[in-house]
Design a protein around this nucleic acid. Structure first.
Lengths: 218, 218
DNA sequence: ATTTTAATACCGTCTGCCGGTATGTATAAT
DNA sequence: ATTATACATACCGGCAGACGGTATTAAAAT
């Protein structure tokens, strides 16, 4: 294939194709050759020019996946017009309403054959999202009196684990009914920490999402 | 190697060796040849006679890992002398005190290079342990009045996720201090669900375990 | 008790694929 | 014109698994 004046386009093409294949077949079951075959003429040399290993592609793919979400988190975190508790509530609402969620759900990725991708996301949640986005908000909440806890670092982790991992229908299958119940338990848990931030609007959107995902899977 | 009259011994040998190697080097970085080299004369044919794939060995290994733990859970679940809340407390205590824990920690398995094993355990926790062991206890607790919740299935999952996964230093690195704080948050969460079952004895043992694990990790 | 039959335990080689590398070549940038 | 970059191509060692074969045991038949 002819050399591209904007090599970024080639990088993006590789990432697009890889993302799709990783989602459809799982990282481990996607070979470099598979990726090449969907690249429209590009060769192995192109891939290994832009990425140093297959794992490196995975990292880039997950980074791109989380980038948009992190952007949203940063914006809310840095707002000056909300107290800690309100920010948390906003985050829950926005996470659920992000349109990209629909796109991902449409692909209906199979995390069960994708342990590496899952683990990579899990790790990012604990090592990056919790300390850099949720923790500052909890700290603010402690300072402004809207949140009360002695161990905000750990609370941040636990909340994310429950909300982002446990409630994620891509990771753990859930019927609408089960999603609803998880939501109730999560709400109860948050209330136990003084965080009364769930409302019925969120619940509605959540069950809707679960339905979409299940339809696409079926 | 000579044919074994008790083929079970051969199977166990393969599982012993595989378990050790999976823990030391990770599943993905352990080759069939590695396993053969530690089998003391047995060959590739032997392995593929008893197991249909490398993944099949992994499943058998994890089954054996969880079998002992499940045995303990079943015994406590079926006791007639404890109410629901007391059973839960017993489970926490015993999980932490199981001597096998020390052994596993001594090997210091690296789950970071072992996403497949981790995911397999995660799945087992939600699909097997939660519904078959914790749920019946919660139900009993609801019946005898020692536990109160409308959604015991989901509560079982959430408790296990927090206690077995999040608190597991093999999965998420924790300093002694962090372990302590996780323990406090977990205790607070359980209290929020009316489950006041943590005590200082458990905390001591937990920090001890974390120290052992960290020492072995170097 | 001996032979026959069949099932099982195990051996060792071979194959195709896979991730990764080395090297070559054409084109864009300077 | 020179250099740096974007690719292409040929190749490598290692890998999981398949497979044909052999030796041992157990069961059935004689």
């Amino acid at each position: 294939m002819a050399r591209n004046k904007q090599p970024e386009e080639t990088v993006n093409l590789i990432l697009d194709v890889s993302f799709r294949l990783f989602m459809e077949k799982g990282y481990e079951h996607t070979s470099i050759q598979d990726i090449i075959d969907h690249l429209g003429g590009l060769s192995k040399g192109a891939i290994y020019h832009h990425f140093k290993s297959k794992e490196d592609i995975l990292v880039a793919v997950t980074d791109r996946m989380t980038a948009e979400s992190n952007q949203m988190l940063a914006e809310i975190r840095d707002r000056a017009d909300l107290d800690g508790k309100e920010k948390l509530k906003r985050i829950f609402k926005d996470s659920i309403n992000r349109p990209v969620q629909n796109d991902i759900f449409t692909i209906a990725p199979d995390f069960h054959s994708n342990s590496k991708l899952l683990f990579s996301l899990l790790h990012d949640t604990i090592e990056n999202v919790a300390p850099n986005y949720i923790l500052p908000i909890l700290r603010q909440g402690i300072a402004d009196g809207s949140i009360e806890t002695d161990y905000p670092e750990q609370l941040a982790e636990l909340i994310l684990l429950a909300a982002n991992v446990w409630m994620n229908p891509m990771i753990f299958d859930s019927s609408e009914e089960e999603s609803f119940r998880k939501f109730m338990i999560l709400g109860q848990m948050l209330k136990g920490f003084g965080l009364d931030i769930m409302d019925s609007e969120m619940l509605e959107r959540l069950t809707e999402l679960t339905a979409i995902y299940r339809k696409n899977k079926g």
